[in-house]
């Protein structure tokens, strides 16, 4: 059984069928790329998985437990985490406080010196993404690239088992992109990063920079008009004529 299984997820916004019977399966320590043209329903799928929206139909099962109707924070407690496409920092709070909010969560346990451990974990999450030197600055002074990293640090501070990243590479410089890709690969393998612990983290990465994504993804799922169009290894997807048609229009590849 997979770590996360979504069965037949559908979501309608007024007259728009945003998702129609989408299945998604993520194994442990697997990196799944989720791609598709604009408006294909990628972000909607993320929101259904995290419980920001409720699906009209379908079920979400995480670690063998049905979570379709759980509130977001309980899903996070189970080990899900996600980042937003547009960073949503707590602007007036210091960078470290942004991460502390996540680190104080119930996943850190409530035994003994848990507050100190949470604080250490928050610092190490900042260290991991490389913005620990800005810890005491207010989040409003960070650059776009730093905000993206803060977003990831915040998700990591909950020590997730499945991390869903919405366009993590968008807006990053090529150097930043490469660094981040390496960090994500390390994270998937698992281990100790300071006092931050990872059992090996599975990921779903929504991304438009396909060349970067295909380098680290094990499997790619293509969405188009709210339905799964294709699924397979990055190599297979890169060759798939249906995918090219969806992205470029009919006849464009001919």
């Amino acid at each position: 059984m997979g770590l996360l299984e979504a069965h037949g997820l559908s979501k309608r916004f007024g007259g728009l069928q945003a998702l129609y019977k989408v299945d998604l399966r993520v194994e442990e320590r697997e990196i799944v790329g989720l791609i598709g043209p604009n408006g294909a329903g990628k972000t909607t799928l993320l929101r259904l998985l995290l419980g920001i929206h409720r699906p009209d139909e379908g079920r979400v099962v995480f670690k063998g437990q049905e979570i379709t109707h759980l509130p977001t924070w309980e899903r996070v407690e189970l080990g899900l985490a996600a980042t937003f496409q547009n960073p949503r920092p707590l602007r007036r709070l210091p960078v470290i406080a942004n991460v502390l909010v996540a680190a104080y969560g119930p996943r850190g346990g409530r035994k003994g010196d848990w507050v100190k451990r949470a604080e250490a974990r928050a610092l190490d999450a900042l260290e991991f993404v490389g913005i620990a030197d800005k810890a005491k600055e207010p989040a409003s002074v960070l650059s776009q690239g730093e905000l993206k990293r803060l977003e990831i640090a915040r998700a990591l501070a909950t020590e997730p088992e499945l991390l869903i990243l919405d366009e993590p590479f968008a807006g990053l410089t090529p150097v930043e992109t490469e660094l981040l890709a390496k960090s994500l690969a390390r994270l998937r393998k698992g281990g100790r990063f300071g006092r931050l612990h990872s059992e090996g983290c599975a990921m779903v990465i929504i991304e438009h920079k396909l060349s970067e994504l295909f380098k680290i993804a094990d499997r790619v799922v293509v969405l188009n008009f709210g339905e799964v169009l294709a699924e397979g290894t990055p190599e297979a997807i890169a060759q798939d004529p249906r995918v090219m048609e969806a992205y470029l229009g009919e006849g464009a590849y001919a």
């Binding site: 920001i52 924070w73 407690e77 949503r88 007036r92 909950t158």
Partner: peptide, 19 residues
């Protein structure tokens, strides 16, 4: 801190596991 954070962005705070 949670109060502060809820004022700043409630959805973002939910996403990191705060009830």
């Amino acid at each position: 801190l949670f109060f502060h954070a809820i004022r700043e962005d409630e959805v973002a705070v939910r996403m990191v596991g705060v009830n």
